[in-house]
Simulated scan of single mutants.
Amino acid sequence: MDAITIKNLDVVFGDKPQQALDLLDQGKTRQEIIDETSQVVGVDNVSISVKEGEICVLMGLSGSGKSSLLRAVNGLNTISRGALEIKDVDKQVDLATCDEETLRHLRTHRVSMVFQKFALMPWLTVLDNVAFGLELQGMGKAERREKARTQLEMVGLSEWESKFPHELSGGMQQRVGLARAFAMDTDILLMDEPFSALDPLIRAQLQDELLVLQEKLNKTILFVSHDLDEALKIGNNIAIMESGKLIQHGQPEEIILTPENDYVRDFVAHTNPLNVLKGRSLMQPVSELKREQSRLQICSAQPVWVEQGSEELNLVQNAQLVLHYWDSEQSKISEIDHSTVVVASPDIGMREAIELKQRSGQPILLVEKGKLVGVLNDSEFYDALLGNYNSVEAA
């Protein structure tokens, strides 16, 4: 069951939303509707689902509708038409039709939010800011403070619990906001450009910390960002919006490799592909390698051949080289030198693959289920750096 399911959602700001909806059905643009009715279409017929444990990043230029969509997920924006279902234990609750009591329940037990401006209460200590949502849930003082201390320890602020927000740096204040949201122990976390007001180094650090926390807590996160590199770094999926419409939704690599239109293409034009692309997307497939009977030449510049066995590869008549099956969690980079031919997964990241190639000087062999599927050599790395990958389909 998906954590969030959105079906044909429209959000209109104004006192006569039906007029705007009628014009939408006639094919009018957002600007035409504003000119005719003074109603603003924030979200236009969006359908999207977010799986449990997924980080989905909403992206777009200012006014694209990403924050309007996010705020509909916890009822801050009224749904004009369509359905927006939130998983509540073993059932789905539609925010378009639920009553106020159900909405309050979802906000206090299922959905929490981290704001761009931190939204800390200046008269409360750090500890009581983190515990504030638990107080709204009706939890006793001793219990909520104990839980808040656990969350402060998780974000590295245990020694600051008695301080007030003005005594903390911006990055520390945002950590308090994260701790408060995680303390609620809700299934779904909404994050509205939470790091955009921070310095680049602090932002990168908090992005890393969020990913570490996500590994431990496995929340469903809907994250608004205008920074594509941030989206590519943290998102399992990215949804790009324009004028209230959903333009493209997919995995980061898919967004980079197969942009839906010029709007998306412009978005990805200046990003660093090495942060996203995997070996599978750029490899020279095994079908293009020179073959002699059961042997495959893995490098045209030198006579290095391999033979495909039933479950593994073997080097052919080359006593100077050894195969090293690379495991990024168990192998050490110091084990790789110019006598090594690295065997890796097709899902290896390009940064890691380039480092391995630089140390070994040999092609990187990509193996899946014991079978050679492709090779990464210098030309493939040059293609990645130059952006020559638009013709390659995302895996």
Rank of each mutant, 00 (worst) to 15 (best):
M1V: 05
D2W: 01
A3C: 03
T5K: 14
K7F: 03
N8G: 06
D15G: 11
P17A: 07
Q19R: 12
D22T: 13
D22M: 06
L23F: 05
D25F: 00
Q26V: 03
E32Q: 15
I33H: 06
V40A: 12
D44E: 09
V50W: 07
K51A: 12
E52T: 14
E52W: 02
I55L: 05
C56I: 03
G60E: 09
G60F: 10
G60R: 08
S62L: 02
S67A: 06
L70S: 12
R71G: 11
G75L: 09
N77K: 04
R81M: 00
G82P: 01
A83C: 04
L84Q: 11
D90Q: 08
L95M: 06
T97M: 02
E101G: 00
T102C: 11
L103S: 05
R107S: 04
R110H: 14
R110G: 00
V111C: 10
S112Y: 01
F118M: 11
F118Q: 07
L120H: 01
N129R: 07
G133W: 01
A142V: 13
E143I: 03
E146G: 13
R149S: 13
E153H: 07
M154G: 00
M154A: 15
L157H: 11
L168K: 03
S169E: 14
A179Q: 02
A181R: 01
F182Y: 14
D185S: 10
L190Y: 05
D192M: 04
D192W: 04
D192C: 10
E193M: 09
S196Q: 10
A197V: 08
L198D: 09
L198K: 05
D199Q: 10
A204P: 01
A204G: 00
Q207S: 04
L213K: 03
Q214Y: 04
N218R: 15
S225P: 06
E230R: 07
N237I: 00
I238Q: 02
I240W: 02
E242R: 14
K245F: 01
G250C: 12
Q251G: 01
E260K: 13
N261K: 11
D262G: 02
F267Q: 09
N272E: 12
N275Y: 07
V276R: 03
G279N: 02
S281H: 15
S287M: 00
E288I: 01
L289G: 04
R295A: 09
C299Q: 13
S300V: 06
P303S: 15
E311R: 09
V316L: 10
N318D: 15
Q320M: 11
H324Y: 08
W326C: 14
S331N: 05
S331R: 06
E335A: 08
H338E: 14
V341F: 08
G349S: 08
K357T: 02
Q358H: 11
Q358R: 15
S360Y: 07
V367E: 11
F381V: 03
D383R: 14
D383F: 11
L385R: 10
V392M: 12
A394V: 05
A394C: 14
